[in-house]
Design a binder for these strands. Structure first.
Lengths: 144, 144
DNA sequence: TCTTGACCTTACAGTTACCGAAAGGTTTAT
DNA sequence: ATAAACCTTTCGGTAACTGTAAGGTCAAGA
């Protein structure tokens, strides 16, 4: 099967499928005669697996682990579960961070008239001296 | 003022301050005699402004707009407020996405024994055929 | 047979917001 | 004089791709 169809069947972009080969996740055979990639049913199954795992937010590094577990008939389901529980933890952290940011921003917006005047409490907040401790200083920025 | 002190006073890393010059956000004078950057009080004020704006999650592109508004005595506070409200919108979208992912992952984890057996409903979920519509297919991945 | 269009190929640059390391110049203090 | 603590530029790396360029291949229709 050509890359285009493999991509379509797995729900990935063609470029993404090539990228996954480049980083050693799913490596297809090649047709003899031309340079085209030839994806087997198993290859496509693995691509689909990766699409699902990415869709729930796992990094490619973790996806690599998950795929290895998927292929390992000797796996312990405990190993899989740990990865999922870790991810849930991460998401909870992000949820807290984002909630805090949202509160901060809502507080700012509520104080700003939002009219034609230049007066703006939001700008003042951003310019305020260090010594006044502001809520958002206690929160990590959303490095994602 | 040298870059190190400017960084310390604004709460940014030295590398970050150089980067902000590179992308045209805060451009210091130079000392005559050596190549050292010479940050004015206004420069440092702008750096601090950027640190605050980044800390609440604005992208550098938006920070650039915010800084321009900050420097513009003719600004309308409405323009500032729009940027803040937009950001709140984005955060809400992210919160919804992450909540949905969390639910999905919790659902998976609850079905997995997490023991020494290879049986794992999580793996089955990732491998399932397209036709079975799964909740996480309706949710955008967390591209952040 | 020729050609057109839809495929496929590689390779390189760009994205975001920086950080780390290398290799070297300057200043300050001892 | 020399060592520590600054400063400089430049390059490469990060995550997970996307876009573009320049070109090879294949199937179908005129």
């Amino acid at each position: 099967m050509n890359i285009g169809q493999a991509a379509a069947e797995s729900g990935l972009a063609t470029k993404t499928v090539r990228y996954y080969e480049e980083i050693g996740l799913v490596i297809p055979a090649r047709y003899t005669g031309n340079d085209y990639r030839n994806y087997s049913a198993t290859n496509v199954e693995h691509l689909r697996f990766l699409q699902r795992a990415r869709a729930v937010g796992f990094s490619l590094d973790v996806c690599r682990e998950l795929l290895a577990l998927y292929c390992d008939s000797e796996r312990r389901s405990a190993e899989v579960k740990v990865l999922v529980l870790d991810k849930i933890q991460q998401i909870e952290t992000q949820l807290h961070t984002l909630s805090a940011l949202k509160s901060t921003l809502l507080g700012m917006a509520s104080k700003c008239a939002g009219d034609d005047s230049a007066d703006c409490p939001i700008m003042e907040t951003f310019a305020a001296p260090m010594k006044s401790i502001m809520p958002f200083m206690l929160v990590e920025p959303n490095h994602e």
